[in-house]
Each structure stands twice: as C-alpha cells, then as structure tokens.
C-alpha cells in the first residue's frame, strides 16, 4: 500500500465511481457471494460500521451494498451480496481480477463508538449480519468498553446461516455470547428453532434491560417485531437502532428514490434510531 495515496473517504465527486479490483470472491451460500475489493492505487478506504457503497457492475447497473468487513482494515472492502436480480446477479458473478465501480461510503452508522458500559445486543436476521458485522468487529476490538456483547442470529435453516466459520470462531474464542435460531431444521440440529424474539428472554437473562443497547438488522418485519419485543422487556426505544433498506439511485439525497417518510434512507439512514421511525414502520404506504 502506498503511504502517499489519499484515503478514499470523502470522494471528490460522489456520483463518480472509482474502479476497484476484486482481489477475492467466494461463495457464502447458494445465492450469496462475498467480494474482497482493493483500490487500484493502494489508497485506504475508510468507512464507519453500518455504511454502504453503491457498487457498479459495469454495463449492468448499480446497487446499494453494505460494507461487511472490519473497519480497522482500511486496505480492503468486503461486500456480501445476494443474487436477487440483474445487478446483484452480475456482482455475484465477479471473479478475482475483475473490476467494479464503487461510490461511497454513504449513510449513517451504528453508534458503537459512543457506547460505554452497555450490554450490546446485536440481532441479525438472514443477510442482516453483513451490515452488522463491522459494528461487531469494532465492539470486539474495544471489548473493555462494554458490559457484555451478545449476538442473536436468525436464519431460515442451519444451512442458510451466514458466515458460519465466523460464528464458530466467535463462539470458540468466547468473544461474544451467541444465540442462533432458525425457522426450521432437520433432527440433527440441536440449536433453537423459532423466531428471534423467542431468544430474547434467555439472551438477556440476568441483564438489566435499561443497560441494553440493541442493533437490529434483517428483514423489516423481523426488525419491527424484534424492537417491539425488546421494548416490552424494558429496553429503551432510544437505545435501539435499525438498518433500513429502500431502493436507491443517487445515494446522496438528491433523487428521492429512497424516501422513507420525511427522511432519505441514503442520507439520513440507513441506520435509524428506533424511536425516530417506530411509527413509520407500521404504515403500509411507506
């Protein structure tokens, strides 16, 4: 890496993608691929946990994709992408050596750096672990600042669990407390089956809910009911954050594509404090 290179933090023209190189691409799940990207000039790419980039598959189009790597490793960008359509499909077919256009980083972040002495509770559903993982890395790197760190992970089935190698590593090293639950499983599964809310009571046993800060990311319905369940247990709605998704185009608050009530998800989010959006979450037309 060149020391002299300018970091790619505040990109001069946020509408102009920089070309980055795929240094590694690997399959996480049947329809999910992770990409490791590096800048062509070796300049670092700083980001805050929870932020996203617009990834441009040349000739196909752009998609908002969260940054899922360690914010301390500014020499690379990790992205985890599910193939759901034209752009995401093209991104999942990239190979080492290919180029991809990157605009970003954009958006708000998980407020992990401003937390002290709190019990951190991460609630991830499906691919939701990808946007949360940078915050988990950051929390683990500054472990002494927190009373405890717990991850509740929900997935469709055991074979749909994202980053199983990472979950195993965190468990083996006792880095955090991990509760995994799936929607259904075969008889060989000895973990939990049920929705993430069924894990709350056991995950928070012996913990004062007033001292919990919760970060939720996953399908919107899961976040909505998850936040409701935590609030019922006494977790303050001002101490819960959710990462929202809306279809995006400009990513800089100009086009209005990602409007979510009075906010733009690209600029005011994607990470929102729960009390600021709770009412909007239940409105059908938003």
């Amino acid at each position: 890496m060149r020391d002299s290179a300018e970091p790619h933090t505040a990109i001069a023209d946020p509408m102009l993608p920089i070309a980055m190189r795929v240094s590694e691409a690997w399959r996480e799940l049947d329809d999910v691929v992770s990409l490791r990207l590096v800048t062509k000039d070796g300049a670092p790419f700083a980001f805050a946990p929870g932020q996203f980039n617009m990834l441009y598959a040349f000739g196909v189009g752009e998609a908002a994709i969260s940054i899922s790597g360690d914010p301390a490793r500014t020499g690379e960008l990790l992205h985890t992408i599910r193939d759901v359509g034209a752009v995401s499909g093209a991104l999942t077919r990239l190979k080492a050596g290919d180029e991809v256009g990157v605009r970003g980083p954009f958006g708000s972040s998980w407020p992990v750096d401003s937390e002290h002495d709190r019990h951190l509770l991460f609630v991830a559903g499906g691919l939701g672990l990808a946007p949360l993982r940078p915050a988990i890395y950051r929390a683990l790197a500054t472990r002494h600042r927190f009373a405890s760190i717990t991850l509740i992970m929900g997935a469709r089935s055991p074979r749909d669990l994202l980053y199983p190698y990472q979950l195993a590593g965190w468990t083996a090293s006792h880095a955090l407390r991990l509760n995994i639950t799936v929607d259904h499983a075969g008889p060989e599964w000895t973990g939990s089956v049920g929705v993430v809310t069924t894990e709350f009571a056991r995950a928070l046993a012996g913990i004062d809910p007033a001292k919990v800060s919760a970060y939720l990311c996953g399908p919107e319905i899961m976040m909505r009911f998850g936040a409701m369940g935590l609030a019922d247990m006494g977790v303050s709605t001002e101490r819960m954050w959710l990462s929202m998704e809306r279809s995006m185009k400009c990513a800089i608050g100009l086009c209005g594509h990602c409007q979510f009530g009075p906010d733009f998800v690209c600029k005011d989010g994607p990470v929102f404090r729960h009390d600021e959006i709770a009412r909007r979450l239940t409105l059908k037309e938003i």
Binding site: R82, V84, G126, G154, D160, D183, V195, P219, E220, I221
Partner: peptide, 16 residues
C-alpha cells in the same frame, strides 16, 4: 404469533 412469522419465510430469497 411466532408460528405466523415463520410462515412468512422472512429470510427467504424473496423477502425484503
């Protein structure tokens, strides 16, 4: 209620 949530297949490929 939880059973209904599971029926939604929240984490399926077509879930938002």
């Amino acid at each position: 209620r939880n059973g209904r949530m599971q029926l939604l297949d929240l984490y399926g490929a077509n879930a938002g």
